[in-house]
Design a protein around this nucleic acid. Structure first.
Lengths: 231, 231
DNA sequence: ATAATCTAACTAACTAGTTAATTATATGAA
DNA sequence: TTCATATAATTAACTAGTTAGTTAGATTAT
């Protein structure tokens, strides 16, 4: 028979983890911080194990929070994942939209966009993993992804399509189909970080070292520039 | 209490799904085909739901096979997934290595490689999804991924690094770090297929139509050419 | 017969989510 | 200032449902 009804010595409730150095989140005081800790832990857990593989217990543990609190702040696992997606993509949008709405000339605007996108991912190398997992799901796109697409990607995509048209008309860009060019760029930026663990074992280099990331950034901008800009 | 001990009317064993049109695999006759059917179903299931989300019941059902047969051919879910990885990557290696071992001049060899890679993925658009999920797991790379890396990626990577050196020395390629160039190329090729569902909802086009794939292929070769080849 | 191929039914373990409290703080009346 | 109290924040322990994997046997070609 399995070990149901564990007879562990019970601590008096509400005073768990007495001697810990952790600042004892929650207990009326740091609700914002508890929520944030849960979200942060969720990002890590979803990134590591995917939507289905992520364990709510593990998230709660990593956030130093009781599991029920997770359901107090977020309706269920799915809602939590949705919050993670919003966190990731609203962050991206916040970095990238100002650039796209600026009045820079096409060439410069494109370079600024690439840099902003790259920097955001480089600062949060886990994010690609969080996304990809769901990204590529279900033939027509789940209702959830539909929402994310409309809320975050459509506006960015529109601006970028405008930028491409503008640059092409000005004779600065080669003629490219946005449907081909834009996912290619995202692929170049994102894939490196996804493949980082693999590269670490294959080569003997740390693909995420500061120096490497600096080189990588330069490479990406150069790579895309050569493919897009008219010489 | 849950519905344990279901009292469904039992069919005589060994004669399940009587009136079905399915060719009734197995029962001493088509062991190869049963195995293949399981593997094929597993590819689809792992692609759609990831390692953790994939359901062995669903795989068995899709393969028109009893679940226990799945464990007869494959030790466990993990082993099945490993078989899926081997299937996917050995196929890739088979397409790509002959090109890399040929005696074509660098420029042409690179284009042939790109085309071969692209065609393999285009013919199996589910494969990127199967891989990515595991691809980007666990900081240092799981023991499983370690194996896959050594068996499939290292030889391909070596040949490609040689090709790059050769092309650079011949003055045909710009000077690029393989660590930057190669993952970029893979990203460009793969990402489009992963993002296909999303693009389908965002735009009103089928990203996987024959015509679209033809265009995409040309774009990818051109995109990479401009970034790599000296003009 | 017998060994390879295949199956219905089962179980042990896991996991998302719930429940019924418990604690701390802010608020406000006395 | 003090004390009751509402309520926001938090928890230990539990449960219902799911799922990987097993068992004990049934077919069937040779």
């Amino acid at each position: 028979m399995p070990t149901r009804h564990p007879v562990r010595p019970r601590r008096s409730p509400g005073r768990a983890r007495a001697g810990r150095s952790a600042p004892r989140l929650g207990t009326r005081g740091q609700p914002e911080e508890s929520r944030a800790a849960i979200l942060k832990a969720a990002v890590a857990e979803f990134a590591e194990h995917g939507t289905a593989g992520a364990r709510t217990d593990a998230i709660a543990r990593a956030a130093h929070v009781n599991k029920a609190l997770l359901y107090y702040y977020f309706k269920d696992k799915d809602t939590l994942y949705e919050a993670v997606l919003d966190h990731v993509f609203s962050g991206l949008r916040a970095r990238v939209m100002p650039v796209l709405e600026s009045k820079l000339p096409p060439r410069q605007k494109m370079l600024e966009y690439l840099g902003a996108y790259f920097d955001y991912i480089a600062a949060n190398p886990r994010f690609p993993r969080v996304v990809q997992a769901e990204w590529m799901r279900s033939g027509a796109g789940s209702a959830r992804m539909q929402r994310v697409a409309k809320e975050y990607f459509r506006p960015i995509f529109r601006k970028l399509a405008d930028l491409l048209r503008e640059g092409i008309e000005a004779g600065e860009f080669r003629v490219v189909n946005p449907m081909d060019f834009l996912p290619s760029v995202v692929g170049v930026i994102i894939f490196y970080f996804g493949a980082a663990p693999l590269m670490k074992t294959l080569l003997k280099v740390d693909p995420l070292s500061v120096e490497r990331i600096r080189q990588r950034r330069a490479f990406v901008l150069d790579f895309v520039s050569r493919a897009l800009f008219v010489r």
